[in-house]
Design a binder for these strands. Structure first.
Lengths: 116, 116
DNA sequence: AACGACTATTCCCGTCAAAGAATATTTGCG
DNA sequence: CGCAAATATTCTTTGACGGGAATAGTCGTT
């Protein structure tokens, strides 16, 4: 699977990720903020960790969980593949391309690639 | 939930979305391409449709399913909130913004898109 | 070493969702 | 109107997953 999306399917995990956007947090604090019991938080964090969304830094007895950038990058790259679908700017881009095609003439391309 | 992510958690649905990237497809063709039985394809399409990822155009007895741009946009916007996390270029950008703010005086346009 | 704070793991249970098979529904055509 | 193609829906079973409660593990302090 291209990106570990399924880990975010769970609402509480999405909330955890949202919370971690504000910076690394220890398990207990996450539980407080989201009104979740500690074991559930640990379990969700485990899933998120195995999916690559978070990582833990050990500080004394605490584990400070923080977001990892990689899956976000991956997701962004995946979205890029669909850009022509949803990006409004694609239309402008298409127009420009069309214009270039006309200016250049079709079929033979006499200019070649010597645009530079 | 911000975006209908859970619908994409299912591997086969992710595959269906991937297939539809190549253009609208009728149910039967999707089943062929992905080696899925027709009822499952219909069921998955139903979920995707209710989540807003696809829409169907009726052509004779066929239903041609196509991707809808909205959820992709939504997902992109969600990603934007995490940009400082994963986008390496964020640092440069922040510098530019800072520079503009200084030059212009009062701040403006807090959420502009990058012009690539 | 013992204790306390913090976190992880295990076990049980209820729920939900996906697959399979069978059937119903829609639409065009003769 | 009745048939065939294409798709949707129902029913059932089974496996996965989340929550609760209890327990185990880790680390610093004394």
């Amino acid at each position: 699977m291209l990106v570990a999306l399924s880990a975010l399917a769970e609402p509480n995990r999405l909330r955890i990720v949202g919370l971690l956007r504000g910076g690394p947090q220890p398990v207990g604090r996450i539980g407080e903020r989201l009104s979740l019991r500690q074991p559930q938080v640990s379990k969700h964090l485990r899933v998120l960790k195995e999916a690559g969304w978070v990582d833990a830094e050990v500080v004394a007895q605490q584990r400070r969980y923080a977001l990892r950038p990689e899956p976000f990058l991956e997701l962004q790259q995946w979205l890029e593949d669909y850009r022509q679908l949803w990006d409004a700017r694609f239309d402008e881009l298409a127009a420009v391309v069309e214009e270039l095609k006309q200016a250049e003439g079709k079929g033979r391309a006499p200019h070649g690639k010597t645009t530079k």
